[in-house]
């Protein structure tokens, strides 16, 4: 199984390589990718350095060009595809059919992976993207149970990649407009969910801290409570007479325990989320997953996730909590 790790900067990229990533995925410093945060991502020059570092050690680099261009930004996306080809990346990760068609026509030998943002959940959808745009691989959305992933893998016309660890999107990716409903910016159009420019942290006189997104109150923390970033699906709201995390709690996805099942199902690659994270984070998470995948590949039947791995990942998780998410039916 291939280990695919995130890099939002050159130090993160080299940290991932050094810690044992097989493949690193990155984005350009603009709205063409789904982690378009201030101070993050690569200029063409820095990406060239990163590619040289990875290729020099036998690793691969993928470029995520996985947002949806509107009619007025179109040339920025085709130019990102051109840059990917010029720089010699090993593949591109794309969601928009128009961009996929441009890449397939212009650079037929450049591997195309279907981004999670395309939200393909069935053999029929995967077949569509393979027949129309010749995709080699698809990243599955985090909405399928393990049984559904296994069944899909049995009949998939393309390689499959699944998310193993990191921030948990609880909505079907590429089909969630919560962020643009509140802020005007969404993952599809701007490459950002609940963007920082719209966030306000407000200390109240009585020791409580309020977090707001474009004015809307997302959460309110009592003195001493650990305050989280106001990702809007992880806030506390009122429904009926109740108040709480009505959509999801601040928690991270962690599928370390499912590795043997994913391996047996024939999943090609496991992806770690977190291009917005620090090089130190990337190094630690990559090292844990490298050890786990090696253990699983050596002896799938005898595999058990080590307590030290789980402890390390819990420390790096949102709210220090992890979940199997949709893979585990009771979560749904």
């Amino acid at each position: 199984m291939e280990l695919v790790c995130p890099a939002g900067s050159l130090p993160a990229l080299s940290a991932a390589v050094d810690a044992g990533a097989d493949t690193i995925y990155a984005g350009l410093r603009n709205a063409t990718n789904a982690r378009h945060f201030v101070g993050l991502n690569f200029s063409a020059e820095r990406l060239a350095e990163g590619i040289a570092y990875a290729h020099g050690r036998g690793r691969r680099v993928l470029l995520a060009i996985n947002t949806y261009p509107g009619p007025h930004g179109w040339s920025q996306w085709t130019s990102a595809i051109d840059q990917a080809a010029d720089l010699g990346v090993n593949g591109i990760i794309v969601a928009d059919p128009g961009v996929l068609e441009y890449a397939a026509r212009t650079y037929p030998r450049l591997d195309r992976h279907l981004s999670v943002q395309a939200s393909a959940t069935s053999v029929e959808a995967l077949t569509f993207y393979r027949e129309q745009f010749g995709i080699r691989r698809a990243v599955l959305p985090r909405v399928l149970s393990l049984a559904q992933v296994t069944q899909l893998a049995e009949n998939s016309p393309v390689e499959l990649e699944v998310f193993g660890f990191g921030s948990l999107c609880i909505m079907a990716e590429g089909r969630c407009f919560l962020s643009s409903y509140v802020t005007g910016e969404s993952p599809n159009t701007c490459g950002a969910c609940s963007p920082a420019a719209h966030v306000r942290w407000e200390e109240q006189g009585n020791g409580t801290l309020e977090t707001r997104l474009n004015g809307a109150l997302i959460d309110r923390f009592q003195d001493g409570e650990r305050a989280g970033y106001p990702t809007l699906c992880k806030g506390r709201f009122h429904v009926g007479g109740r108040m709480g995390h009505i959509l999801e709690e601040p928690t991270s996805l962690n599928t370390l325990d499912l590795l043997p099942e994913l391996h047996t199902a024939g999943i090609t690659a496991v992806k770690l989320e977190g291009r917005q994270r620090s090089p130190g984070y990337v190094a630690q998470v990559t090292a844990v997953w490298r050890a786990a995948i090696n253990a699983c590949t050596d002896n799938p039947r005898g595999y058990r996730s080590a307590w030290s791995w789980q402890e390390a990942l819990a420390d790096l998780s949102e709210g220090s909590q992890t979940t199997l998410g949709a893979y585990h039916r009771p979560w749904q």
Binding site: R142, V143, L144, S145, I170, M171, A172, R175, C176, F177, L178, Y181, C233, V239, G240, R242, I246, L247, E248, G325, A326, R329, P330, W331, Q332
Partner: peptide, 20 residues
């Protein structure tokens, strides 16, 4: 506006019931 779709059923979660 239909803004988002999830594997999780939020109505079942509100009623403390498993989705199945």
């Amino acid at each position: 506006l239909p803004l988002a779709w999830s594997a999780r059923c939020f109505t079942a979660r509100y009623h403390d019931l498993p989705k199945d």
